[in-house]
Amino acid sequence: MSDGTDRRVDIAVALFLIVVCAIGLFETRSLPPGTFEPLGSAPVPQAVAGLIILLCLVVIVRALRRPPAEPDGLERSWLDAGAVILFTLAYAAAMHFRLASFAILTTAFLTVCIGALVRFRPKSMPVVLIVALATGFGCQYVFTRVFIVDLPGL
């Protein structure tokens, strides 16, 4: 029963889940049995992880029975998505290490991120800058002065 997924994706995700569950099973093996109640802390996560592993094996077997899909080139949109993910991780890391204020980091993140999505076209960049500045400094003002919410960053 195929749901139209590329079998490589199916196998990769199932293997990832198997590894996660195996780590979970390994971590729960040292949990002591229950003292005041019959079940204890370990059996439920162990049963759940075991079931996931079993079902993932079913997914892998089904995927292996399907013919492989034609390999496709790396599309531009995948590069865009990869770039946004990388910029987001860098933005979060910069806030984690408090490299600058929220407003400055957000403005920089949005300029680079939206800029990359519009291919840094000179015609689009003024709008990108306006959006970045308005969001960065606007959010800082609204969240700290109106909603009284702490923001990440310096």
Binding site: V84, Y91, L110, C113, I114, L117, V118, V127, P152
Partner: peptide, 11 residues
Amino acid sequence: HLLPVIVVFCI
């Protein structure tokens, strides 16, 4: 323009 702004709100 919209999607990166939503990322900021998520964070």
